[in-house]
Design a protein around this nucleic acid. Structure first.
Lengths: 236, 236, 236, 236
DNA sequence: CATGAATGAGCCTTCATTCAT
DNA sequence: TATGAATGAAGGCTCATTCAT
């Protein structure tokens, strides 16, 4: 475009790309700073209990900067939830791959991963439930769509199990996947219902066993005894 | 002001009692006015989206009056939730009595009742989830206690079922009752996950069947075929 | 409406009316408080230079109260201008009546009244010019309409003068009325163009004379010599 | 970087001058860029409605650069107005020269030029009125001085007309020039008072005629019939 | 010269709560 | 009891200005 020598043009081009990259990195860093601060502050009280001023302070940035990276408070909420969903998706992917090819094992691994993330990100988990009402229609739709994507891996595994004849005929795999998702999210919301020594692992084991007993074909029972029999102790 | 005459002492006494009764009735009436208005307004946006001014207007009372009957906004939230819990308790009582003496039937009836109330009181139902974070510790404990009471009828019925040998050995009835409660509440929160033609009755049938298949002893299966077989249609 | 004795009903009715009247009086008092404070503060700097906090302080009321009587900041601006227009209208009415039936005298009296109000309400006068751009379309239309009403008395008097054959044939009375309005408003905005000893009366005399010389029919000149001849001193 | 060679001293000197010139040109170009953008953005809403960020974007420069060429936002406003005044002065100069030596013709030409510029630069014209209040004392004085300079050509022409015996004795030429200036500015501010088909040319003709009728000596009437008689149509 | 990320004071507005009537 | 005018702290958001690169 300029009549400068090729070398210079290329140099400029490179510099521009570098600048762009720097901007990108910084943007990601800032975004994470804010998101992490948000999760930390949401510990007690929903998001509307967190003022942008407080968020800025916790994130060690100025109020104005948050508005540079997120357009409005609502967008921060949405970003937090989408971030959580992404973590869930990643954790499920990883653990389900590790679980090998057995669809039932994979499904249980996915559920376990879901619960683990919810356990470590309780604050963020609450958001999905608490804030949805305060958001605009659009934001609500985005969150719903995101939630739906966390359903897919579980349903897929369940579908494979059905195809492999491991589930009883007529098992409602959509409902199964839905219930598993709900129960995973529930851990973050309602763990106080359980005794203090009840941890997420016992929860996963107990819920997995209950769910499998509901859908596992009789012939498959022996094969998954380790998943359904480990006597889940009464909680109280 | 009154034309009371003679037997002044007695008359006054009577009048006092009458006055007292009037006060009580009025208080209940006012309380209900406010509570109903609150539920109506909470329809879109959590409770913090409803100002006391708006609440007063919707309830056709003055702002000050709300503060006479409820000490603070928080107390209104608590009252709304407690009111919902009371409705749930009443509905479960009624439907479980109607269901006769069979513990399994009673449990399913209780679950159905829970879901029905949540279906008709979606707004209030959301409150339990949405607002809990914004309340003080004390209020939170009161709500948790209240929620726990809705668990009792389900667990009792489940306990009877175990005693009657209707459930598989080692069935975790605490977890069962917990899950039923969660799934009932879930209907209010997440019904948008289901197709439009999916109503609360299908939901109750499908979830009941899934739950029973998980815990019902093999010998009891034939007896409750109507509850577990009604082909639960795939949702979507 | 109630079955109480007529006396009581009437008493209540009266009390209600009294309450209503008290409210009205208070509202007017508050409104004036705020309006006056607004005019005072607008002295230097347009309206957007006045914060609602500062306005509240100057008016000795709370910020919230302003929002009770005016819905938004914009409404305060509009009210200030409408108030000014009302004062202009009233002053013109009064002075034009006093001026008798001669249309030319009436027109000049109206112009003088307009200038007098603008002189005593310079701050408010500036508003019309300064703020219009910051307002919403609707508000802008309301202000324009209001301004147009101040034109009417001048044009009417001019019309009568034409009918009485006092003006030259083909005099553009619309333009005349417009120019008089503009020049009246101009006094508030641009009086700094004139020497310090130039006051509003000299301004009125000079502008009236100039305007009349432009439109007065030759035959009418002698009759209005006192209005057109008083040697308008050069404003160095 | 440069391939300059030999005569190093001289070359550098030349280069320096060239550099300086480049800097100047760039500075003027940048300044104009910003000023034009400012006028464009001020179209709706005063200047305070335009943020420096928006201005930078519209001008295709960075925010910082604006602060390099103008010290503060206020200075941009001042520059815009001074720029407008300069345009007015230039247009008046040009058109008054074209008008020949007749002082009356020159005055009317000057007024027409003033109006034309105000017509094409309505946005900037509003600034003079709208923003003055928001500026510091100093800036205000600078603007007032600038405005006064636009008065001079009109007053000079009027003075010549008096000297030539074209105006009635005792005509207040200061007031005449003042009124012409005001009425020219008024076109930008209040043209909405006129019918849609009323354009700036009709406005100039009508106002010129009215003004001349006020000051023209009877003997001069025939000579300027084309300026005062062209029946000014009633506007409405 | 030029950039634009970053700052933070300050703005308009809302709303829980009080209190004189 | 009941009212609703009044308060004022606090919240979300903007934008003039600075400064490291």
């Amino acid at each position: 475009m300029s009549d400068a020598s090729g070398g210079e043009g290329a140099a400029l081009h490179v510099e521009e790309r570098v600048q762009q990259e720097i901007r990108d990195v910084r943007a990601r860093w800032r975004t994470r700073q804010v998101l992490d601060a948000a999760v930390r502050l949401m510990h007690d009280g929903g998001f509307q209990a967190v003022s942008m001023q407080a968020l800025a302070k916790e994130a060690n940035v100025s109020v104005g900067l948050i508005y540079t990276y997120f357009g409005a408070k609502e967008d921060v909420v949405v970003a937090v939830v989408l971030d959580l969903v992404e973590q869930i998706r990643a954790a499920m992917d990883a653990r389900m791959s590790d679980a090998g090819s057995d669809p039932v094992e994979r499904m249980v691994a996915g559920f376990g991963a879901y619960c683990s993330v919810m356990d470590s990100q309780r604050n963020a988990g609450l958001l999905t439930y608490r804030q949805s009402g305060e958001l605009g229609q659009q934001a609500r739709y985005r969150l719903k769509d995101a939630e739906r994507t966390t359903l897919v891996p579980l349903r897929d595994a369940a579908g494979e199990a059905v195809a492999a004849g491991l589930f009883v005929e007529g098992a409602d795999i959509d409902l199964l996947a839905f219930d598993l998702m709900i129960l995973a999210q529930t851990w973050a919301l309602k763990h106080w219902h359980f005794p203090d020594d009840y941890d997420v692992h016992r929860y996963v084991a107990a819920q997995s066993a209950a769910a499998l007993r509901s859908v596992l074909a009789p012939v498959a029972h022996p094969r998954y005894r380790h998943l359904i029999s480990p006597s889940v102790p009464s909680s109280s």
